[in-house]
């Protein structure tokens, strides 16, 4: 964490504003994902509609973070940890925007599902959702606290989410064979599982950016070590 202030108060203000917008994006994205999945599980069409509409605000914030980040680079030419903080904030916002898109995708498919009789297999989604959201919250927490250990732990958790997705897909394909009339519904559930798996990927990306910001280490595209 930054121990003391920059000589230029305007730099501290600009960096704080950038960071606040990223955190606002994170809050809105989390809310959208929650509304989309709750809309699915409770067959609440209105919640899904709100989740879809909220994406506009996340998109606008992404543009604002990019604009402020470029402005900050242009005006202050930051180096070392300052530069890493600006770069990681901009990369975070991109990942958060993509997560917001996943919320929209889930909400759209939930709306389609709610037009037909409920499928009990929708329950496959809930554990995946809890796992993905726990990854999401921890990745943002790691970024905020510059907690390298917490961030590093995200990669193996993403692997677990991938396996949950593979399991859910396998079980849904089995159901399709038994009940071809509900094929469209099972396909939508498979897509939703896939969107949650992508949420885990973005959370992992955020964790990687958190490590870069805190420790100047690039941990992307590294194989998982045994035992993790």
């Amino acid at each position: 964490m930054i121990a003391h202030n920059h000589i230029l108060g305007t730099f501290d203000d600009a960096l704080a504003s950038l960071r606040n917008n990223v955190l606002m994006m994170s809050t809105l994205t989390e809310r959208s994902l929650d509304r989309a999945v709750t809309g699915l599980l409770q067959r609440d069409d209105e919640l899904c509609v709100v989740a879809i509409a909220d994406d506009e605000e996340i998109d606008q914030l992404e543009k604002q973070v990019d604009k402020d980040g470029v402005d900050l680079l242009l005006r202050f030419q930051p180096v070392a940890s300052d530069l890493r903080r600006v770069v990681s904030a901009m990369k975070l916002s991109s990942n958060l925007e993509r997560m917001g898109d996943q919320a929209v995708n889930i909400a759209r498919k939930a709306r389609k599902l709610s037009r037909h009789p409920a499928l009990p297999e929708a329950e496959f989604i809930e554990p995946m959702y809890r796992h993905a959201m726990s990854m999401f919250r921890d990745s943002v927490e790691a970024y905020v606290r510059e907690d390298v250990q917490l961030a590093m732990a995200l990669k193996p958790r993403d692997k677990a989410l991938d396996e949950m997705n593979a399991n859910a897909s396998r079980r849904l394909i089995e159901r399709m064979a038994h009940d071809p009339e509900q094929l469209r519904g099972y396909l939508n559930l498979m897509f939703i599982a896939r969107h949650l798996e992508r949420v885990g990927d973005h959370a992992t990306n955020i964790a990687e950016d958190a490590v870069y910001a805190a420790a100047a280490e690039d941990i992307r595209h590294q194989p998982l070590t045994t035992g993790t």
Partner: peptide
Amino acid sequence: MFSNPAQRQTEDYITGRFG
């Protein structure tokens, strides 16, 4: 030096937090 200095004093100086 300019991406990840080893010393705190260096970091403070190059990022403008000196003094």
